[in-house]
Design a protein around this nucleic acid. Sequence first.
DNA 1: CTGAAAGCGCTTACAG
DNA 2: CTGAAAGCGCTTACAG
Lengths: 356, 356
Amino acid sequence: MTTRQPPSPSLIDVARAAGVSTATAGRALGGYGQVRAGTRERVLTAAAELGYRTNGLARSMITGSTQTIGVVVTDVANPFFAIALRGITDVVQPAGFEVLLANTAGALVAEQRALTVMSEKRVDGVIVAAAQPAEGAHLEHAIELGVPIVLLDRQVTGAADADSITIDNEHAAAEAVTHLLELGHRRIGVVTEAGEQLPALLAADDRPGGAFPSAMRLRGYLGALGAAGLEVDEHLIGSARYDRDSAYDATTRLLDLDDPPTAVLCTDNVLATGAFRAAQDRGLRMPEQLSLIGFDDEPWTTLVRPELTIVEQPTYELGTRAGQQLLDRITGGRERRTNHVQLRAKLVVRGSTGPV
Amino acid sequence: MTTRQPPSPSLIDVARAAGVSTATAGRALGGYGQVRAGTRERVLTAAAELGYRTNGLARSMITGSTQTIGVVVTDVANPFFAIALRGITDVVQPAGFEVLLANTAGALVAEQRALTVMSEKRVDGVIVAAAQPAEGAHLEHAIELGVPIVLLDRQVTGAADADSITIDNEHAAAEAVTHLLELGHRRIGVVTEAGEQLPALLAADDRPGGAFPSAMRLRGYLGALGAAGLEVDEHLIGSARYDRDSAYDATTRLLDLDDPPTAVLCTDNVLATGAFRAAQDRGLRMPEQLSLIGFDDEPWTTLVRPELTIVEQPTYELGTRAGQQLLDRITGGRERRTNHVQLRAKLVVRGSTGPV
DNA sequence: CTGAAAGCGCTTACAG
DNA sequence: CTGAAAGCGCTTACAG
């Protein structure tokens, strides 16, 4: 059935059919202003008969609000962001807001473009998981234009006026290392994608502004060792790219050392899959011959044997809080102080960690 | 820094600053019509100085296009939809379209509301993974209003004018069962969330219109057994809700039978986690004592031992094709015939299946 | 190539 | 409670 599509009826058509002015028709349909019950009835009936639907563009242009927020992430297919995104929609949709989503694949230009487009589409605010925590100029620019921003999962330097919601990654990693120390481990390795930032982390003693979670976790690892009075052995820091195979190789290199680690912390869930596999393929019994800790409570961590000890992030809550924070900012206006919330991760001890 | 936000400059301001008409300013900024190079320069400079950004709402109201598509899914946190969504954005964003996302949590009313709102916001088209394959009236209504729709992952009865992209779930499940039959299995169980649809499936001999993938898979299971001349034993059909614990229980019930199955097909990835665990807890050696097949190539399926034989869906491609299909429809208009594409899943044989 | 004018479809003071 | 008019910020014929 391919009928030629009739032009969508406008408020004028409805008003004419109901015998009222467009102002009155608008009031009846939009639920604002005062309309006599009988008049409202006639307008509603006419609208229904004509198949009228409000033109949201026209309305938004006048009201100055689109009831839409932007969400910019590096990868929606990553379970972490997928779950956080669900948290955002669960909070924001019931409040009458829609979500405009952009995926940047980690490219700064894509993020910049997304912010420009969203700003042109007049979103009421944006939640962004930045591709480059060191690059915040475009974000600050958007804020100056009047677009409230909530940073998700990572702080950004140069975006001082953005709110943020993150996880205390440094503390989370430190807690995992402390657990291993308490079990008696002294040679503790780490599989990380923040390897090349090691020199900077070792040098700096001030807290960095914008940083990837991976860097903060590596920092936590270093800090916990330091607090225990242990020297950092750079051989124990296994650098990997963000994929399973690379983590596999990094883990293998650690296990090949003359003086290999007795325990390994993986600073991410994907890296943990590679590390687990490497240990498995090598036939190492866990936790007797190797203790292993991962990140995120993914389904597989309780399907493998032994079950994996992990650091559990409040991912869903990260999303709901981000959504709530942005709604508050949209309602509360720019006057409110910038708000930085940090959530705590939780160590979940299972079978993959044991005494040395 | 909380400066009071200056009203965003409009085209009028730019035109005035550049000493041209708004028509000319619009042409220079919007990249349409003819403008002398020198004039364009002046306009662009003025715009940059004023910090001008096009008002997309006003533009869309005139051009009749928002360069935005809607995507409606039941659960973005589900890896299946998260990956498909990534496929959609990867195709649609480079083409200059943004994505308006709605999560329905499987509620029909939420889906209806989402379509109304998206239609009011004048999206150029919508991709929807329907909450209720039997309810298509609201979808057909949107199409009549001029909003092209592409159905994702499930057909819907009553939405005859919608395009669709799905996976041949019936064939996929049948192929898995055939694999087990070839290995000599005769008592083949299934863990499914479509259990209550069994009577309907056993009765109907015509292909159903709208149906959940789970129902189509159960249908494939029944068909493959029938083709092999085997009677369907309803005791071998383990009904579960869509969660791990329920699948665990359903699997346990199957294994508790006097004459238990020697092989089990799980019609979904979540159900497979529960089934795998049940087999594991019972101490069954796979594949010697039980052959198991799951759905979707999730990371865990190659981390467990034995590795899981699975049916791999082209999830990412499902998304890219859906995006492409919608763009074609938006460009091509309503005149084109409705287009139904079905993708094939692939059986990946691994260690969890073996001879009986 | 450029401009004056109309118009997209609403909401908002302002009168009555 | 209702209406006439203005206006949101653009693009599009239509003239020149």
